[in-house]
């Protein structure tokens, strides 16, 4: 099932994670295509965050595979997952506080850097040219997310909503194949959330696949091409936003399983 008809980029099969006796993620399968916006939803404790962390390399799966194109990435540490082209944002914005906005974006470009350490240490022209090119790209990216006036700002000067846009811009700087968003609308005003939705659509329009876990259905349903619904660690639905909102299993998970069980 695909929302965009693009090539399959990420293939998740049989993903599982348990914490002691608790099965947080139980045999989850899904695909993610080029340029697709895929939402993962589910009630509290459904395993959304665990799934996110398994893909991002923050946690190690107990079983299952995560393939980026044809390469297995399950079990790689976070920095290697990022180096392969899967970058993430943080739900509670985590900028590098000792650096200005532009420098934060340049850290995001880490995986694109080609200059060797000694070239950097000697300040060789090749390293400086690369730096200047990345800084120019960073200014474009800031303009794209709507922070064009804040390149030299201290990150502490940004509002929470602007901080979320900085998270997007920093991840974009790595020219990722996939960006993972961890509850991107959390804590935003409706105006800010709408603006962020526009940025996410723009990211997908660039051919970057977007995977987001989200609580807020009013934010997610108009945005996602496809939605995967998790409940108690397992996938209970996978389809277009319109299709999954009609699924009895989804309605039951969201409206309460007692009502469902009695019926």
């Amino acid at each position: 099932m695909s929302g965009t008809g693009g090539r399959t980029l990420l293939t998740v099969r049989g993903l599982a994670k348990r914490f002691g006796g608790l099965v947080a993620v139980d045999d989850v399968d899904f695909d993610l295509d080029d340029g697709e916006i895929l939402g993962i939803i589910g009630p509290n404790g459904a395993g959304k965050t665990t799934t996110f962390n398994l893909i991002a390399g923050a946690l190690r799966a107990d079983a299952g595979s995560i393939r980026l194109r044809d390469a297995e990435i399950a079990g790689l540490p976070a920095h290697k997952v990022a180096a392969r082209g899967i970058l993430r944002t943080f739900q509670h914005n985590r900028p590098f506080k000792g650096m200005n906005v532009l420098e934060n974006l340049l850290v995001g470009a880490h995986r694109r850097v080609r200059a060797r350490p000694w070239a950097a240490a000697l300040g060789l022209p090749s390293a400086r040219r690369e730096d200047a090119a990345l800084a120019a790209a960073a200014r474009e990216t800031l303009a794209f997310v709507g922070l064009g006036d804040h390149a030299a700002s201290d990150v502490s000067k940004l509002s929470f909503g602007q901080g979320r846009l900085l998270e997007c811009a920093r991840a974009l700087m790595g020219e990722p194949a996939i960006i993972l968003f961890d509850e991107p609308a959390a804590g935003l005003t409706s105006v800010e959330a709408e603006r962020l939705g526009g940025v996410i659509r723009g990211i997908a329009a660039r051919g970057i696949a977007v995977l987001l876990i989200e609580h807020d259905m009013r934010f997610l349903l108009p945005l996602a091409h496809r939605v995967v619904v998790l409940d108690r660690g397992a996938k209970i639905a996978d389809g277009t936003p319109a299709a999954i909102s009609r699924e009895p299993a989804v309605i039951e998970a969201y409206l309460g399983r007692h009502a469902g069980a009695a019926a």
Partner: peptide, 8 residues
């Protein structure tokens, strides 16, 4: 942790 998430 954020640095690692950027590939560092």
């Amino acid at each position: 942790e954020a640095a690692a998430a950027m590939g560092v």
